[in-house]
Write a protein that binds this DNA or RNA. Structure first.
Lengths: 241, 241
DNA sequence: CGGGTTATTGAAGGCTATCAACCAAAGTGG
DNA sequence: CCACTTTGGTTGATAGCCTTCAATAACCCG
């Protein structure tokens, strides 16, 4: 099951973490970042397929992904689920569910994953000596709102092929920020998960991947993707991406 | 244009506002709510069709709706827009765009509207004497994230008729919280706006309204709706709504 | 009252879901 | 080590939902 790991005194902290440029400290002044080091006192290791939290669990912390990846999902009473996001290292999950201090979604590991635990009570404590922390948390939440709104535009306004192109470009862009190749990567999620996320069936996803391959925009084998023609892919996805 | 109105000393404050049970103070202890009164020093009146803020505007405040209604929307470089929400009195808008202190969406009045201005700098000031304020703001943001995720599930997993039924039920429920009838109300938005919001064309929306009318679930004339069979409507929308 | 906006309705076609078969890879267990 | 099973992915045929194009009607506001 999930393994809770206290952070050793000599272990990597926010100020020395390689993900500092994308994670919680993003955009903060270096002296402020040093003060974040007290914030994370615990980490959690999650095996592939395990849950970091589930709908209904008490919520008193948010989580920064250190290694691995997660999907977040909501479920209705009928058991139908909707994947609301795929999350890579440096991203913060668990931002919903503060209304009732109870998670209204679940987070499941797509591979073996480790997250930093950021307790909200500590946030309020440390914010007394670090006034830039509260606005920072708001910024992170704001980013999640904005991300969800962009996703609404994708589901509401694009057709299947556009959605898939936008999905690939988004993944490519986020991986490149982390230092990985933007044209050659492995998708950690199944066709079914991609389809659910994009409001399509897995068959449609598979077909469209094949078509993008036939058209020479990508080369794809199972979950390994090569982007061969980034420009055409961008054109497909629309003016933004 | 928009009219900025200082809040008179004897005017209604959060502690005496009729919307206290749904707006920013929701769930806060009464003595804490009294302290919120210093938070709102200004209101803005917006005429129908006018914008409260637009994409790219500097952002340093959030807004609580006092009277009227708004839609929020995002736009891509190609000019395509996606409506991300319709907002009623008591709801807070402007929660996105904190990442760069610049709005990444726009908010437009569906009718003559008045909002309370909540400056974020004041939030951080007042929070020093009122520790429950920061968590409260996070709760509101968390609610918006959760709302967006629910909407993703609607767009990703439901067919047109279900989406429209869910839309009507959602509106009905929110209006009833405000003290209005839950079975008879006026929609302030056009068919096109509903369609955009739900990822449908305006023709599909119109057709489905007509069909729901023929089937006896609702009676509809232009923007006036009577819900005749709430139960069937719920059944249509799915297990939750 | 007229002009423009908004809503309704019809016909046709395309996109995507559904149903189904098949394949590949990875376990599983004897 | 090899059948057998399971899981995930690909591809085909068909149906149907929803969009698109189009025309008409109703409404609203100056």
């Amino acid at each position: 099951m999930n393994q809770r790991v206290p952070v050793a005194p000599d272990a990597s902290h926010c100020s020395t973490c390689m993900l500092g440029h994308v994670c919680l400290p993003i955009g903060m002044a270096p002296p402020d970042i040093a003060r974040l080091d007290q914030l994370v006192k615990e980490r959690i290791r999650i095996g592939k397929g395990q849950y970091l939290y589930r709908l209904g669990d008490a919520q008193d912390a948010i989580y920064g992904i250190r290694v691995g990846s997660l999907k977040t999902l909501v479920a209705d009473a009928g058991g139908q689920v909707q994947i609301t996001g795929f999350h890579l290292p440096g991203e913060i999950v668990g931002l919903d569910g503060m209304l009732e201090s109870r998670h209204v979604s679940s987070a499941q590991a797509l591979e073996d994953t480790e997250v930093c635990v950021i307790r909200l009570s500590e946030v309020d404590d440390i914010a007394r000596q670090l006034p830039s922390l509260q606005p920072q948390v708001r910024r992170l939440m704001s980013r999640e709102i904005s991300r969800a709104h962009t996703m609404l535009a994708t589901l509401g306004g694009m057709r299947a092929e556009q959605r898939l192109a936008a999905f690939l470009l988004n993944l490519s862009q986020r991986l490149s920020v982390l230092g990985y190749s933007s044209v050659e990567f492995v998708m950690r999620m199944s066709r079914e998960e991609i389809g659910n996320y994009l409001g399509l069936t897995l068959e449609t996803v598979s077909r469209l991947f094949s078509r993008l391959g036939r058209d020479g925009l990508i080369r794809i084998h199972q979950r390994e993707v090569h982007i061969l023609d980034m420009e055409s892919l961008r054109q497909l996805a629309g003016p933004d991406c």
